[in-house]
């Protein structure tokens, strides 16, 4: 499954016109201990680059942006009870939401794993 990354430190794993979105390991390390996550419920329309979820660490609240536009099919309910999954498994069990892409061409501007690695090293 192709994996893409944004400059706002979200990842998106794509399969056909479906995808899973989360935040990167770099992002969770920067945030520190995650204590609250709010994910969008199924049916929410999200727009590329706009706020789609909220993640709060002990010290601050941050927005999570939708890497692409689409309709949410599932929010990760496990994060409500165990928000620390974002720290322990950011690119696995700590995923935020799944969606149906409305325009797969929006993926074109995103980075691949190698590009993201270089981007983070440049920060």
């Amino acid at each position: 499954m192709p994996l893409y990354f944004t400059k706002d430190h979200e990842w998106i794993s794509v399969e056909g016109d479906s995808a899973t979105v989360g935040i990167t390991d770099y992002a969770q390390a920067q945030l520190g201990d995650v204590v609250f996550v709010e994910v969008p419920p199924a049916g929410t329309a999200v727009d590329k680059g706009k706020e789609a979820a909220v993640v709060e660490s002990v010290k601050a609240a941050s927005d999570v942006y939708a890497p692409v536009s689409g309709t949410v099919t599932e929010g990760n309910g496990a994060l409500e009870a165990d928000p620390a999954l974002v720290n322990t498994s950011p690119e696995g069990e700590g995923w935020f939401f799944k969606l149906t892409l409305s325009d797969t061409s929006e993926l074109d501007g995103l980075m691949d794993a190698e590009g993201y690695k270089a981007f983070v090293e440049g920060l």
Partner: peptide, 11 residues
């Protein structure tokens, strides 16, 4: 002091 309901902090 305030005890806030739920899990989400107010800042």
């Amino acid at each position: 002091g305030l005890l806030v309901e739920g899990r989400q902090p107010v800042r």
